[in-house]
Design a protein around this nucleic acid. Structure first.
Lengths: 341, 341
DNA sequence: TTGAAAGCGATACCAA
DNA sequence: TTGGTATCGCTTTCAA
């Protein structure tokens, strides 16, 4: 059995309140007593019980805010299910989770949403920031007010956010390069398709892919990158175009959305299963394509975890005084094939 | 804020004790009162707080036993680190975890260990069973005494264990077949090496691999299975032998241990990086081989999770009255390459 | 500078 | 069949 605060107090010959003051550095304790208590705490390996602590704090009715963008995408829907899960868990612990699900990319909307959250009195904030100056400033402002911020799914530089929860897009891009190379041992022509030019994550995935291919797998020949704006229609046209010019196309790498468009076109052209397709984000659609053989490999980012973890970390930080252990909570780079869905 | 038992009691116009009796079906409550309370509980969506419950139960000093075999293997060492983590967490919750780490395969030792655990008065038991009649009977005996049992890493049929935590070895074998095929698109000769004949997990991984190759990838040509008894020395000889007879060997699939022996031999023969190697279990050694290119793909079974989860499930079951949600807690089939370690 | 005591949510025992 | 009450570990007034 773990040592309790009560036992520690008895051992030190003082009251629990005094021990509490010492442990939380609240002052108003005679220095020698303070030293003695710290000493004993170490010796007895005292650690506060999260149960007791959580129970007390539950009164306060802590509020945690979560702001989410692009919620119309299948990927974000899975993130939302993680959020719902943690919301329920927090409810049982007496805390409330305020969610604002923004259904598209709207930087201005994000700013007003942050303000609303502040007005509601949230004590911590998790969000998927766009990479703009406005947002960066606003985040710094929030943090300056003593409200901790966690970013997820996409990160933002130059702020003092507590930590980031999401994919390591650079390693993910490298991983895809490795998969492409091992599938095309004899070499071949590969078409790289990205989503948006301004999208941090897409960019990192793509550059890492390109660099790894060029440095480690020279037998693969890369076509120039194209951007499909996360649209199936556009990716469809891009693939169609490419097939016309290069009938010997061997691989397609999709760093953003637009996966289905690629698969559809290859299937129509009778090249499904022949051309190696590697892309991101496990959803119902892409799972189906994996099973049909339209997609060979897929990188899953652990969507659920990205929804669950940030609010959980905020709760631990605010209520249990437990700092996040790392600045980057990278979700696993999960390689999916039709056999390990 | 969630509804508390106290609020529920007030709403029903009875004492908290009465509500408690109803909720736990202890009887001694007038039927109409009971009905009313259930009704209200539903309406107010009452759910007991794990915090409050855990706090009360922490007095009892619950004991949970964990028995682990083969603890000398690197894989099991990682399982042990998961066990240590949960042991610490449970300690903070007031429960004690008793661990018996058996360093080899010793069915008789397992039986005596179970008896010792019972004598210590554990209220729940997690173990890695051997697949023998003795063990099966003993497990049933334990369960008959009202002590729940969870199996992990390897399962055992014909018992009423609460659930199994571990890999889905059949899907894992299929996944490896898919990886081998995508790496050898032109087809090729593949050597399948298993560990022990009697080992359930090895067996499943191997048969699933064979069946999938035969039915879905006829261009791959499988040599007969060999068993290396989890020994690097033996796997070394097997590969050496095979290379002599079949210099055109293209792939090796290792379902058990002996990975290093395979890599070493291929490297000496100058075939490293040419022959596709697929195997199991992420350890320091195998991670090194992945990075060096000696192993192409590796299936990681989430060793840490296999140590952590079982005891955690038992705690939730015993203390929080939360039944495991599933009978099979399959850990993710994590495909590892040198890029996503 | 210190300690006593109430209370968080749930359980269990004893008394009514 | 019921309710009162102590208890778990911790935090937080309030009073000394």
């Amino acid at each position: 059995m773990a040592v309790t605060l009560k036992e520690l107090a008895e051992a030190a010959g003082v009251s629990r309140a005094t021990v509490d003051r010492v442990l939380h550095g609240r002052g108003h304790v005679r220095p020698d007593v303070e030293a003695r208590i710290w000493q004993l705490a170490r010796e007895l390996r005292y650690q506060p019980s999260p149960l007791g602590r959580g129970l007390v704090k539950s009164a306060r009715g802590a509020k945690i805010g979560v702001i989410c963008q692009f919620t119309e995408t299948p990927f974000m829907k899975m993130v939302l299910s993680g959020i719902e899960q943690v919301r329920e868990e927090l409810r049982l612990m007496g805390a409330e989770l305020l969610l604002d699900a923004i259904d598209s990319y709207a930087p201005a909307r994000m700013l007003t949403s942050i303000d609303e959250m502040l007005k509601e009195g949230v004590q911590g904030l998790a969000l998927t920031p766009g990479n703009t100056l406005d947002i960066r400033n606003k985040i710094q402002e929030v943090i300056a007010q003593g409200i901790p911020v966690i970013t997820f799914n996409t990160d933002i530089s130059g702020t003092e956010r507590l930590c980031y929860v999401g994919l390591d897009n650079i390693r993910a891009g490298q991983t895809c390069a490795g998969l492409m190379a091992s599938s095309l041992r004899g070499g071949g022509l590969v078409l790289p398709i990205s989503g948006y030019r301004w999208h941090n994550a897409h960019d990192q995935r793509m550059s890492a892919f390109q660099e790894t291919v060029q440095s480690a797998f020279p037998s693969l020949q890369l076509l120039p990158v194209t951007w499909c704006h996360d649209s199936d229609r556009m990716s469809q046209e891009i693939v169609l175009d490419t097939l016309r010019k290069y009938p010997n196309l061997q691989g397609v790498y999709v760093a953003g959305n637009g996966q289905s468009g690629v698969c559809r076109t290859l299937r129509k052209a009778g090249r499904a299963g022949k051309v190696v397709v590697i892309c991101y984000d496990l959803t119902e659609q892409t799972a189906l394509e994996l099973e049909r053989g339209g997609i060979d490999f897929l990188i899953d980012q652990g969507a659920w975890e990205q929804g669950y973890r940030p609010a959980r970390l905020l709760y631990d930080y605010l209520i249990l005084n437990a700092e996040p252990k790392r600045t980057f909570y990278y979700t696993d780079i999960l390689i999916k094939t039709r056999y390990n869905l």
